[in-house]
Design a protein around this nucleic acid. Structure first.
Lengths: 234, 234
DNA sequence: GAGTGGTCTAGACCACCCT
DNA sequence: GGGTGGTCTAGACCACTCC
């Protein structure tokens, strides 16, 4: 039961995690106060605080002023994964990355695009369609819409060499958005560009990006070629 | 350029984020040392340290002893999302959650299962098949395999009322694993249970869960009914 | 009102690693 | 060698909230 000597906050974290794992403190239990733990571990309260905060960030503990630190009942599984930058994703597998712009059109938004981007009918939207390939085989189809009122510079950008994906991360600071993953049956048009069979199942990632004011910068639909898998470590 | 008065580390974080956002410090740039920033902001170095560490955890800064703090060149988009617990996912939408066990069999693993679970041919595996429904409509099909050598208690558990999903989170402390998301064309067998059309595209989540020793506890395939979307906030 | 976590401070020492 | 971040300490005050 005796813990190895505690030197840093990482040690405290390890020891607390061990006790949670061993159910020494069970879900719903109240932990001793920071001061008590500091006394037990023979360190400053700040050190205990750092450790408990880290664990709380992981979602295993819940802390409240005056209410103390409690073991979360239903520890939500949280996973943090990095959203793939297409070029890197391909090059990491030692494959040759290819890119080609299929379409580029500045237009008034269609109704579907208006809904997706939450813009007015008289907005000016840049619509792009591009294909990313790995070792010459179609990898993912990028269908993107950019609100030129929010990102005027995109109107003059040349997307024939650099993908909208890369141009945007380089030029537009963003803040938030949503990512929606789903499975779809490929459309005829998309199947042609992806060189896959009609009726195939494809993995689709829709991403909406907003700036700090909450305005929609861009919406992108990534239609992956059949067989694509998104792998996330837990 | 003058910042509003700095009181806490959150203020420091906000101000630094503002400067990154405004490209006052550009990707690749070296930031002033913590001591300098502390002097500028009129606070203790500890406070600056806390703020910069938080930003570094977000992936926007890279910090090295002696090397200083640098603005990350290609800020990886990182998203952290909580893995849905099926019952909660459904009940959060004010829908009625239903569960039924379709199959339960203790068996030697087939070759496919052996590969998935990384077990020997003489292992004892509990194979389960269950359906989760929302408002009476099939929602997701759970196909699960549990290694009884790792979780012997599962052999006696009754999964006719409680889903394996919930039983496992309640009884087995786990540590890591992988999550693989993909789009598939539904199999005939699965289509029957999900009451969907043959050939439909379905969203599939495969999850492998390991214990602290690295042994595979369980593998689950979640086959969602057509139309399912996984939404992640960025 | 009182006990808890949240945070700041000032100083200190250490680990790292670039020059 | 020296400058940087990483962390600990001890004390302090504050904010919140439960009783």
């Amino acid at each position: 039961m005796k813990a190895a000597s505690i030197n840093g906050w990482q040690d405290v974290q390890t020891e607390v995690l061990r006790r949670l794992h061993d159910r020494f403190w069970k879900p719903g239990d109240l932990l001793p106060s920071e001061a008590d733990l500091a006394a037990e571990f023979g360190c400053a309260r700040t050190t205990v605080n750092r450790a408990l905060q880290a664990i709380a960030e992981e979602g295993l503990l819940e802390r409240r002023r005056r209410g103390g630190t409690r073991v979360v009942i239903n520890p939500q599984q949280r996973a943090t994964f990095s959203i793939p930058v297409i070029r890197q994703e391909i090059e990491q597998r030692q494959q040759h990355y290819g890119y080609s712009l299929l379409k580029r059109r500045q237009q008034r938004p269609s109704r579907a695009v208006r809904e997706r981007m939450q813009v007015e009918a008289d907005a000016s939207v840049l619509a792009l369609r591009a294909l990313h390939s790995a070792d010459g085989r179609p990898y993912v189809l990028e269908k993107r819409w950019i609100d030129l009122a929010v990102v005027p510079a995109a109107g003059k950008a040349d997307f024939s060499e650099q993908s909208p994906n890369e141009w945007l991360v380089a030029h537009v600071p963003f803040s938030g958005g949503e990512l929606v993953l789903s499975a779809r049956t490929v459309t005829e048009e998309d199947a042609a560009d992806l060189a896959c069979e009609a009726g195939a199942s494809v993995f689709v990632a829709e991403r909406r990006t907003r700036n700090t004011q909450g305005a929609t910068i861009t919406v992108v639909h990534l239609v992956y070629a059949p067989g694509y898998q998104m792998v996330i470590d837990l």
